[in-house]
Design a protein around this nucleic acid. Structure first.
Length: 640
DNA sequence: TTAGGGTTAG
């Protein structure tokens, strides 16, 4: 310091001396404060923390700016215990004199934020409750913490009301936080209205949260409306709308928006790419997914993005690429492992799925409840009843995971599929949960598979008790009656549906070709190439008939003459898609088809034979699993 | 000192 003073020119020297006198006119600062200030800025964190006990013992509180910096450093590199050391120091020392009254607030707010980031909501709320004064930042920090914590969204909204009552006006930070807590359309509309009222609706942060909130509630139109009204958009806003479309299952819409985003001059970042991959996953757009992969290479450390890529390969039925990616990934978390376990299981490779699960444990990764859903799914779809029981019974002891509804549902599926319907019923009556409609629907599906109409009727009635509006139960019930050729009962069930104005969801299949997705609807010849498709379909039918194909008319729902039945079967959406794919596919490349409903038995045997006669790998993904057809055999082993 | 978007199952 002295040497610096000596080098200063005369006039500035006098001024500096004045200011030095000024500094010294107060009590001498503690000698450790300067070091603490430096360490809180650059770290290392442990060295800064080590000074705190001495300062506390001397009764000297570090300056608020340094403390806030240290808290930030702690959030970045530290543990909750380190954070508590800072809190302890602050509560055991008095605010030094001469500071503005708000400086205490500054540190308290930082501490609340830190506790929230460490997931210690209890400590955050306790500190908030002890504060003599709270400003908009204090309130917002708590609102954000509650909105981001699972299951505390209603409290976040209550705090918004309380802060207004306390005469603290919410700002754009508060609104962008609280929007994530709006769980119903009514609440969201009310919060949106107050945002407009206070004039914060043009804020770009508030807008992106609004878009996200609408999309998460499934209100795509309102989300799109907020997006369309915007004059200036940033990358996050684009990402919000693309993510919204991708998550709502409108993959084509998401990709269209992505193209528009690029035309507007924005470059995709990790968030964008993740959403685009999700869109590819939903629509089985493997080629586009591969193009995205090229951009993912830039972000080799981004686990979320890599997990999305892994899932895309799994759900597009390309396990080779999934496997290659998985083995190259430098880091894997529980989501990577779970994705791989489920991916293999859904593709009919249950034994490998269980091997990956073993590998996961031997590499020291701990499964979570979703991993276990994948494991049980693997067992149920391969008929591995004993293994399923083993994992179900030991998951709590081995991994501390209590069986939840989803796991019970997998068990009902496991028992039901394997024909142990009585055991499935016993399991339902003995489980720790009241059976919900999902469980009954699983049992109903098993009843249909094993043609047990009485039990099916019972399960369907249980579903309708819980969800009187649900037509799925009636459809499955009538399908069961149709399977048993109990046409009168089937018709009765259909009549109720007709009276209620219900329509069976039409079967839809789609396929990615070039940069386009081609959609086929059961019984509709709406595709521009329909004439050619029908011709191709007839050719395929002739070929497979020579190989022994006989239409399995039991998969038609209504009681029709057998020729009509065949006609209905002929135009199932997956058959139209297969014919179209045969006309356009590249030699040696597998055909990938996606379906909105489960594949029917007739189409299943048809596609098996087409794969044989055409020497083609055909992969069909239904909402639950995959069928890899090759050489007349399906990966599901006819068990699905 | 406070805020927005992205991954696994069902």
């Amino acid at each position: 310091m002295r040497s610096l003073f000596n080098r200063l020119p005369c006039k500035r020297l006098a001024a500096a001396r004045r200011s030095r006198r000024c500094l010294h006119s107060h009590s001498q600062p503690h000698p450790l404060l300067a070091t603490f200030s430096r360490l809180s800025d650059d770290g290392p964190l442990p060295a800064a923390l080590a000074l705190l006990p001495d300062l506390t013992a001397a009764g000297v509180r570090a300056d608020p700016i340094s403390l806030c910096r240290l808290i930030k450093l702690c959030v970045r590199h530290g543990t909750a215990n380190d954070g508590r050391l800072i809190h302890d120091h602050v509560s055991r020392t008095a605010n030094s004199g001469g500071e503005a009254p708000d400086t205490g607030l500054l540190v308290s707010n930082s501490l609340i934020s830190m506790y929230a980031k460490f997931g210690l909501l209890h400590d955050a709320l306790e500190l908030f409750g002890d504060m003599p004064h709270r400003n908009v930042v204090s309130w917002t920090t708590v609102v954000a913490a509650l909105a981001n914590a699972g299951g505390r969204k209603k409290e976040a909204l209550r705090f918004l009301v309380d802060m207004k009552r306390d005469d603290v006006a919410p700002n754009s930070y508060t609104y962008s936080s609280v929007l994530g807590a709006c769980g119903t359309p009514g609440v969201l509309a009310a919060v949106h209205a107050s945002i407009v009222k206070v004039g914060l609706d043009s804020d770009v942060f508030v807008r992106s949260s609004l878009i996200d909130a609408y999309m998460k509630l499934g209100d795509l139109d309102s989300g799109r409306g907020v997006f369309d009204e915007m004059v200036t958009r940033d990358l996050v806003v684009w990402n919000s709308i693309i993510a919204g479309f991708a998550q709502s299952g409108d993959g084509v819409g998401a990709v269209e928006l992505f193209m528009r985003m690029k035309e507007s001059g924005f470059s995709a970042n990790q968030g964008t790419l993740t959403s685009v991959l999700r869109a590819c996953t939903g629509m089985v757009m493997l080629d586009l997914g591969r193009q995205v992969h090229a951009h993912v290479l830039k972000y080799e450390r981004d686990l979320i993005l890599h997990n999305a890529l892994l899932d895309m390969y799994c759900k597009c039925g390309s396990l080779q690429e999934a496997d290659a990616l998985f083995s190259r990934m430098p880091r894997r978390d529980v989501i990577s492992w779970s994705t791989m376990v489920s991916g293999l299981a859904q593709n009919g490779r249950s034994v490998e799925a269980l091997k990956v699960f073993d590998l996961m444990q031997s590499e020291g990764s701990t499964p979570n409840h979703i991993t276990m859903v994948g494991v049980l799914f693997a067992c149920s779809h391969a008929g591995l009843v004993e293994d399923g029981w083993y994992y179900f019974r030991s998951m709590e002891k081995l991994f501390g995971i209590q069986p939840e509804r989803e796991h019970c549902n997998c068990m009902v599926d496991l028992l039901g599929r394997s024909g142990k319907l009585d055991e499935a019923v016993k399991f339902i009556s003995e489980m720790n949960f009241e059976p919900d409609s999902v469980i009954w629907r699983t049992l109903l599906g098993a009843c249909r598979m094993h043609k047990n109409a009485n039990l099916a009727a019972y399960a369907a009635r249980e579903i309708l008790k819980l969800e009187p509006e649900d037509q799925g139960a009636r459809i499955l019930l009538s399908n069961t009656y149709a399977d048993l050729r109990q046409w009168l009962d089937a018709e009765k069930s259909w009549k109720v549906m007709r009276n209620q104005g219900a329509k069976k969801e039409p079967g839809r299949s789609w396929i990615e070709l070039g940069k386009q997705v081609h959609v086929f609807i059961a019984g509709e010849l709406s595709h521009p190439c329909s004439a050619g498709i029908v011709q191709e379909l007839n050719r395929l039918i002739r070929l497979v008939t020579d190989l022994g194909y006989v239409p399995l008319t039991e998969f038609v729902l209504q009681d029709l003459e057998s020729e009509q039945k065949e006609d209905l079967l002929k135009y199932h959406s997956e058959k139209l898609a297969v014919a179209f794919a045969m006309m356009n596919s590249m030699k040696g490349k597998p055909v990938r088809i996606m379906k909105n409903l489960r594949i029917c038995g007739d189409c299943h045997s048809f596609v098996k034979l087409v794969s044989k006669s055409e020497g083609k790998v055909i992969i069909i993904r239904d909402p639950v699993r995959f069928h890899h057809f090759q050489d007349g055999v399906c990966s599901c082993g006819d068990y699905w």
